[in-house]
């Protein structure tokens, strides 16, 4: 804990918001959509932070902001304590790289594997061009691909192999942080575990820091040191993974955990008690944005938004917690 205070986190967002103006139709003007709304998140160096939430909760927008692809409307992103405000795209790229979900669309089909993996070296003009081939071979070896595959095209490889290529491309510049956006959900079960093992090994070997975005809570629980739960543009619970999984504080986290289908035939299909309707982010509910779906909804939840309350490094935004705190 102390170390984390002395060393600045590898990645940090400070009250970041992202507002898009969404057209309401011809001549009707626009309405603001708060894709992310005041997110403060820390990813300590060398750790894995899992980010979970339903589709439409703002996970992808947050990932885009962290990758420097989307400027935040307000707030600040810091890499190892340095604000990204004055950074060029390349400065950001050297620090943080993404791995995407679908290895079929993340590799350009017209290029060879060698050209794909060496692309960051060419863009950033790193070192001597005559060494690039050797670097590519080394990187392919690290991710477990034979060096002869460098001359193949993506269409000649299996899904798992392509994901390895995508990982090689992300790591060849040796960034500190990698954003893994659903890295295994497009892959077959037997391949998923290989990629998860690889990510784990690479983290230990190269001292990487991961932000793991996934809807598969079993994967998050397996890899992550800390977990952040996102709902409608806000982080509603954040804390050490074992605490969050063992003792979730927010009703939404509880519902998410109940929905996880562990392969145990003794348990039936879970009943989640969540209303079906994910609210429209253009027109979010008043008060606590989760209240229409919440089983423990109280009167105060409909009018007043809860504030974040943390104890023992475990934060949750819920009025239930305020009762505890008092």
């Amino acid at each position: 804990m102390k170390d984390a205070e002395i060393i600045a986190p590898a990645l940090e967002t400070d009250n970041v918001s992202c507002v898009f103006n969404v057209s309401q139709g011809f001549m009707k003007g626009t309405k603001p959509l708060r894709a992310i709304n005041g997110v403060s998140l820390q990813v300590p160096k060398g750790e894995v932070v899992g980010l979970v939430g339903e589709s439409g909760c703002g996970k992808s927008t947050l990932a885009n902001v962290l990758l420097g692809l989307q400027a935040p409307t307000t707030g600040d992103v810091r890499y190892s304590g340095t604000s990204a405000a004055g950074f060029s795209r390349k400065d950001v790229a050297r620090r943080i790289q993404p791995i995407f979900q679908d290895p079929y669309s993340s590799l350009n089909p017209t290029k060879t594997i060698r050209s794909i993996v060496s692309q960051p070296l060419r863009i950033h003009n790193v070192g001597d061009p005559s060494e690039w081939d050797a670097k590519v071979d080394e990187m392919l070896d690290i991710v477990g691909l034979p060096s002869r595959s460098a001359n193949n095209y993506p269409s000649q490889m299996s899904g798992g192999q392509r994901q390895r290529v995508a990982i090689a491309r992300a790591l060849i510049m040796r960034p500190e942080i990698v954003i893994c956006d659903e890295p295994t959900s497009a892959l077959d079960v037997s391949v998923q575990s290989q990629i998860l093992n690889l990510l784990q090994d690479l983290k230990d070997e190269l001292g990487l820091t991961y932000l793991l975005i996934s809807h598969n809570l079993a994967v998050v629980e397996h890899l992550a040191d800390r977990v952040a739960v996102m709902y409608l543009g806000r982080i509603v619970e954040e804390g050490p993974a074992d605490k969050v999984f063992a003792n979730p504080r927010h009703p939404y986290t509880k519902a998410l955990l109940e929905s996880v289908l562990t392969p145990d035939p003794k348990l039936g299909v879970p009943e989640t008690h969540l209303g079906a309707v994910f609210p429209n982010p253009i027109d979010p509910p008043s008060g606590c944005s989760f209240h229409p779906r919440c089983v423990a909804c109280m009167d105060i939840c409909k009018s007043k938004a809860p504030r974040p309350i943390s104890s023992e490094g475990h934060m949750a935004e819920c009025h239930l917690m305020e009762g505890d705190a008092q």
């Binding site: 037997s190 575990s193 290989q194 093992n197 784990q200 397996h222 890899l223 999984f245 392969p263 145990d264």
Partner: peptide
Amino acid sequence: FEEPAHPYTQGLLRCIPVPGKTKRGERLGS
């Protein structure tokens, strides 16, 4: 699920992380 008999079924069941059963950070089977 309790007594998988074929090597493929056994292999598949080792591949998935199960909260509470597989330890964090442990290597998964493949």
